[in-house]
Write a protein that binds this DNA or RNA. Structure first.
Lengths: 364, 364
DNA sequence: CTGAAAGCGCTAACAC
DNA sequence: GTGTTAGCGCTTTCAG
């Protein structure tokens, strides 16, 4: 049996030449007959309004008519057009998410949380990736918003002025890891500063007074936040020397800085993120340095692997899924015309595992 | 300055009561005036057709008119409705992807590859997760397809008969890691059997003759495939004893089976996937077993961390992104009304790293 | 309870 | 070149 054959037969039997229809441009749709509400109405001998009512489960239709309509719909393989429905309703039941980078676990989890929460209300999710490209980001945001009923912008890179200018066209809008002071755009973010402060306090309590920071990409906002928090935390302590080493965001970056870490004379390293910490762990291991015996290492993010390194990594965990879930809550409130609730700063949770320990004797 | 205030003022100036409009139900949209093509036409003193032409960059519009239209559009903050456009054009410029589980790196990468490739042609991506729920999956697929121009189904769990029945309504459709023999639905999949065969050959060349398989979840199709391939590969060799241990898909599962692995007397372990292999590595390490000195371990998938374990993991890599990219190619061809090209079986690539080595002396 | 009719916002023949 | 007109497929008042 050939599906192709079957389809073609059906098609030529039901429809004249597709070329005669207007509105066909670019890649053609599948050339199935594609029943419309009109055809179903005709087949069932009722009006389109009645078909509409039946399809939407309105209880005010006589049982006999409803049955006839359902039969006709079944027979014609009728699928109501959601596009037409959206146009008539003024609502697409779709929301969009723009992320800078789909390969980042942070955004993957936001995506998951958002998608799941939205699905609970019958909303679908449109996803777009800006590839860290600022110009692209603004375009994407506007476009994605036009296709949907609301928008979530995760860690947008757009300059504040532009974001502010855009925020009106993008509403209902929810911001993740970014805020717009003075506007009424809801914002959910991670309090990186608090996370860093917790890590520093932990290190201090272990006796560490010389810390080296393996800095992330200069362009990264979260790096700037983490770095500033680290400076502040160190400055607040009576004795706390901070060395900053330009590093990066990857395992290899961390690995490459092992020697520099040693040269810094620090007793503890705070890495921009877990990947960098892993790399440092590996590089230090190769140099014969024991962690945490000779040196303590802390990461940030608590990516799934942090539990499984040797030694397991001390890090700060952030509620990535929750960010997506609550973004939906805010968006849903906005869609309902209500206020979105208060902004929140998620507090990272310090996870003390085995990569941090007391300062080696004589090195305090 | 209050954005809220400004907006409200504009709104009440431009529009009577929103309640009088039909088609408003459920959560209301943001109550912005939302200029239409008609208003712009009116403001610019031209017809809607002209506005449409200008907005779509048609070159056949007098410069002076075009300028007036652009000014009016700017003034009114006009954003063409993509929904209306889709309805008129019969094309949404959106495709959908359904995955069983968004937390699986495999699907994350497919998503990324597909999204990126589709974006290159101005298409957007709608994503939905079936949560491994078969009933849900079929519904989602149909619904997602109705909102878009085409569909990619990744590793669908739906039974063959149902998929076959659905395939017509879902077209243009591309299948990932699943095929529909005899249909003309394009299918891209990973040749797990070939990957397993390569691993076994590698192990054999190292002298291993007793292999233990750490099996994945019984419900998993890919586990069944891998397991079957392993049996076949071992059966094909002159001397090759295979022990199968029920295990799972996670680090902890692998970790927990370390003792059982030892008891099996095998000299090499083939894990269902990399996570399980990591767990085994860790569990064996704790038991004082050297890898690959005492035992060889191989994983499957080449997840990003496989390079960074100690020792780095021998595994089979699969082109996850490529799967997404090529799914787009197929879909694009289908959208254009052409044939989709031949199905492909991606061949995993064996990555020999340090977790596999020669059989210990006297244990061959 | 059902149908007729108007409209959602945009596009594209077709005529001027 | 530009406007007129007729849809795209569905929903929803409003009569009856």
């Amino acid at each position: 049996m050939s599906l192709t054959g079957d389809r073609r037969a059906e098609q030529s039997a039901e429809e004249p030449t597709d070329g005669s229809r207007p509105g066909r441009r670019g890649p053609a749709r599948s050339d199935r007959p594609s029943a419309t509400i009109g055809r179903v109405a005709e087949a069932a001998g009722v009006s389109r309004a009645t078909v509409s009512r039946v399809m939407n489960g309105s209880p005010t239709v006589a049982a006999e008519l409803a049955a006839r309509v359902r039969a006709a719909a079944e027979e014609l393989n009728y699928e109501p057009s959601l596009v037409a429905r959206s146009l008539a309703l003024g609502r697409t039941s779709t929301v969009s998410l723009i992320v800078p980078d789909l390969s980042n676990p942070m955004f993957q989890d936001v995506l998951r949380g958002l998608s799941h929460a939205a699905a609970g209300r019958g909303y679908r999710l449109l996803v777009a990736e800006s590839n860290e490209n600022v110009a692209e980001e603004a375009i994407l945001a506007v476009e994605a918003r036009r296709r949907s009923d609301g928008l979530v912008l995760a860690s947008p890179r757009v300059p504040e002025a532009e974001l502010r200018a855009l925020s009106d066209r993008l509403a209902p809008l929810v911001l993740l890891n970014r805020d717009l002071p003075g506007s009424n755009v809801p914002s959910l973010s991670v309090d990186y500063a608090a996370g860093i402060a917790a890590i520093v306090a932990h290190l201090r309590s272990l006796g560490h007074r010389r810390i080296v920071y393996l800095a992330g990409p200069a362009a990264s906002t979260s790096n700037r936040e983490r770095q500033a928090a680290l400076r502040a935390a160190c400055a607040a302590e009576p004795v706390c020397a901070l060395t900053e080493l330009p590093c990066g965001a990857t395992f290899d970056d961390g690995h490459a800085s092992a020697r520099a870490v040693l040269r810094s004379g620090a007793t503890a390293v705070v890495a921009f993120n877990d990947m960098v910490a892993f790399g440092a762990l590996s590089g230090l291991h190769e140099l014969g340095i024991g962690v945490p015996r000779d040196l303590s290492v802390a990461g940030f993010d608590d990516i799934p692997f942090a539990r499984y390194t040797t030694p397991p990594l001390t890090t700060a965990s952030i509620p990535r899924n929750e960010l997506g879930r609550q973004a939906w809550d805010r968006l849903w409130a906005l869609l309902g015309g209500g206020p979105a609730g208060h902004d929140v700063h998620f507090q990272p949770r310090l996870l003390v595992r085995d990569s941090t320990g007391p300062v080696p004797a004589g090195r305090g």
